[in-house]
Design a protein around this nucleic acid. Sequence first.
DNA 1: AAAAACATGTAACTCGTTACATGATTTG
DNA 2: CAAATCATGTAACGAGTTACATGTTTTT
Lengths: 225, 225
Amino acid sequence: MLSVDPVILGMIAMYPASGYDMKIELEKGGAGMFSALTFGSIYPRLSALENEGYIVSFAADNQGRRRMLHELTAKGWQALADWLTEPPAYPLPMRDELLLKLSFWYSGRGDDRATLIAHLERRRQQSRELLHYLEAWPKNGFSYISEYSMIALNYARTRLEAELRWIEETITQLEFPPKGPEQDPRGLAQRIRERRAAAYGVAGQPDPTAQRGDEHSTAVEPYRA
Amino acid sequence: MLSVDPVILGMIAMYPASGYDMKIELEKGGAGMFSALTFGSIYPRLSALENEGYIVSFAADNQGRRRMLHELTAKGWQALADWLTEPPAYPLPMRDELLLKLSFWYSGRGDDRATLIAHLERRRQQSRELLHYLEAWPKNGFSYISEYSMIALNYARTRLEAELRWIEETITQLEFPPKGPEQDPRGLAQRIRERRAAAYGVAGQPDPTAQRGDEHSTAVEPYRA
DNA sequence: AAAAACATGTAACTCGTTACATGATTTG
DNA sequence: CAAATCATGTAACGAGTTACATGTTTTT
């Protein structure tokens, strides 16, 4: 039972679907906010799930074009119900390049606030678009949306709205002058600038001697809880 | 340049660190909110990054215990700065089992609201703990936290607070009776119950005949935008 | 004296993605 | 009639995880 399997079973549970249907549904629909599948993982799993008795597959006529539909067996319905009953794993960490870049920003770019504002404005644009798409989806007159899907949708909406507020506040803050570190008992901010300058060399050219071991004598105690 | 590489370079940029340091720092520190690394990916990449000239490694005496520290070269500092300048990829989709389960909840568990409330209460507990940990971190008197790391931390805090509010609202809603689907123009809610009943069989035992292709004649039009 | 934490590293494995292959039908 | 879309499938690849192997030092 791979992690994609419950998604496949869940999609089929809504209606007997083809592999292609599932891909499209996830791209355009609600569950796609929380998972994505590629054909390369869908089709092999459909075969496996059929071999293991979770689904049955049958050809459906699609005016000449071949089309394989899949339906859950009793075992498949049971597996889905069991998976839903299992306590969901806590999503950790929140993989997000923007946040990761923020964590390392000072070390790598110092007080280059302009580039960071550009990143944030791009993100604002993307999140706004996603929010609009997501608000339109339950009103498209087509998709099946249960009370529970709507709750999931509410989560995504709430999260995006909070993100947009954070972006506004952050851009405002970045338009003011830099504030200096929030906490820096070991004076790392200063040391980072010095180490970078040493690596590049005083005249701006790379300095090969700055790469020998002995120069790194300013060892920093790592954090131990 | 693998996706873990900028994280390694970013950690080293803060202070010359060992592979072990990075693992611990990510587990206990701020960047760990947004990325995790295992030894199996750290050590091989440290060798590779040294071979490619991004870092230099040197033995540091750690009272008898061996310890390899790593420092950025000019090329390494430059690679980090370049990576930070690149527009960050939009994090899509938000992989979250709880949300995925909500999407499929009705199909698999019908109106079993008790189990769902249990999931939400568990999540509330975990998110509260993370929030408390995360609020304590910038006051531990040790970690280096730049203005920008603090902004990332603010994001995580904002997001968790929004999530906790959503959990409260959702639990309250789930204590009321079920509402029925938000949007269901094809009558799928009804069909799902019928299909599940057919798969299990009327008497509760699995019905093998319900698994033949012909019975699935109630084909549902897939969504096409 | 044992267990936990410190510290580095390798090899096998697993899962998912990318790229490729094929072919029918609809649309411009 | 060419291009886009529909539709299914396979094979190679890649990147990260898990498990294993090894040895030291500190804590209980």
